[in-house]
Simulated assay, not measured.
Amino acid sequence: MPIPDGPTVGVFVPAYNCEEFLPACLDSVLEQTYPPSQVVVCDDASTDGTRAVIKEYERRYPSRVEGVFHDQNRGIAANLNSGLRRIETDLVSLIAGDDSWRPKKIEYEVEEITSKEEIRWVYSGYQRIDAEGNVIESPEAINAGEGDIMCEILVNHVGLRNWMAEKSLIEEVGYFDESMEMGEDVDYKVRLSERSKIGYSEYIGVRYRRVKSSKSFTRDPLDYVSSVKKLLKKNKYKIENMSKKNKNKVIITNKKYINKAYKKWAKNSLEERSISRLVRCLFFSVKHKKINFALRGLYGKVKSWLLKAIS
């Protein structure tokens, strides 16, 4: 398919141990009705056949696909930056190696971003799919927003995945924060939203795959709590400058998320019968005493189990 006459589009694809899903991902990107002229696939030292898949696509599409290979695992943010640094097109988009796009995702986003002068980045609707590609959540159930949506980003109330942005906006914002082990994507979207309103294409262009090996399933609750607190601290001045309504929404909603993570951590500790994990959980809940740490429903189980453990 020939490259269109409009603005050029580049796509970077962070990949790690996604051999099973990467071919479908790359096919969906390369076969867009508005095809990208540059696709950069970054392998973060995968231990499966991901590298071989990338090399095969480099062979098949020598003028469009470029592989970047890390000798050691450097983390999500560094892998994202490896791809972002190589994109030289007018517009930039991204997709995880286990996700895929529907055929007109790029076409509709280019139309949106070029038709409104105040819009410098854009995104499409999405649906969640399982490992087999079956839809597990309908598009109607996922919130969408446009314009100034920094508050919605910080409370995770917007289905903003696989955005597209002007290269000039990317150059202003810079790269992903490699000091963040989690939440680097949210932080980057906050920084984008600070500089430009966002456009929204109602076309359901993204298919977001949820598999049990993904980080959203396997993340440690404490890592999640730490990432949320770091994100809020880093963006404190932006939150302080929000309206009172939005500021309270960000603070209260994230406290609920943290509280939920602590409860999950405590429950997992009980199920695993791990005293060390439970004590660590209780220690951090006290350390962050400003958080309403609600273990009320688990208190009886905790007390009973600890008495048995020390008797």
Rank of each mutant, 00 (worst) to 15 (best):
I3Q: 08
D5A: 15
P7G: 08
V9G: 07
V11K: 12
V13Y: 02
P14D: 01
N17G: 03
E20R: 15
L22W: 06
A24D: 00
D27H: 01
S28A: 08
S28M: 06
V29T: 03
V29E: 02
T33P: 08
Q38A: 05
Q38R: 12
D44H: 00
A45C: 15
T47M: 12
A52Y: 03
V53R: 07
E56S: 15
R60V: 13
P62W: 01
S63R: 02
S63K: 09
R64Y: 04
V65R: 05
V65D: 07
N79R: 04
L80P: 00
S82D: 00
S82Q: 02
G83Q: 02
I87D: 09
E88P: 10
L91F: 14
L94V: 01
I95F: 06
A96S: 09
G97P: 03
D99F: 07
D99E: 00
S100R: 13
W101Y: 11
I106R: 05
Y108C: 11
T114K: 15
E118A: 10
R120F: 08
R120E: 08
S124E: 09
S124G: 04
Q127H: 06
R128K: 04
I129A: 06
V135W: 02
S138E: 12
E140Q: 11
I142C: 03
N143G: 08
M150Y: 02
E152G: 07
E152K: 06
I153M: 00
L154G: 13
V155E: 14
N156F: 10
L160H: 14
R161Y: 12
W163V: 04
S168A: 11
I170L: 08
I170F: 01
E172R: 12
F176I: 03
D177G: 08
K189L: 05
V190S: 01
L192P: 02
L192A: 03
S193Q: 15
S196T: 02
I198Y: 00
S201D: 13
E202M: 07
G205A: 08
K212C: 05
S214W: 12
K215Y: 14
S216E: 10
D220Y: 00
Y224F: 00
L232M: 11
N235P: 09
K238D: 01
I239K: 10
K247N: 09
V250N: 11
T253W: 01
N254T: 01
I258P: 06
N259W: 13
K263C: 04
S274H: 02
I275C: 00
S276D: 11
R277G: 05
L278W: 14
R280H: 03
L282D: 07
V286I: 05
K287D: 03
K289L: 13
I291P: 15
N292I: 10
N292D: 13
L295W: 04
R296F: 02
L307I: 13
A309M: 14
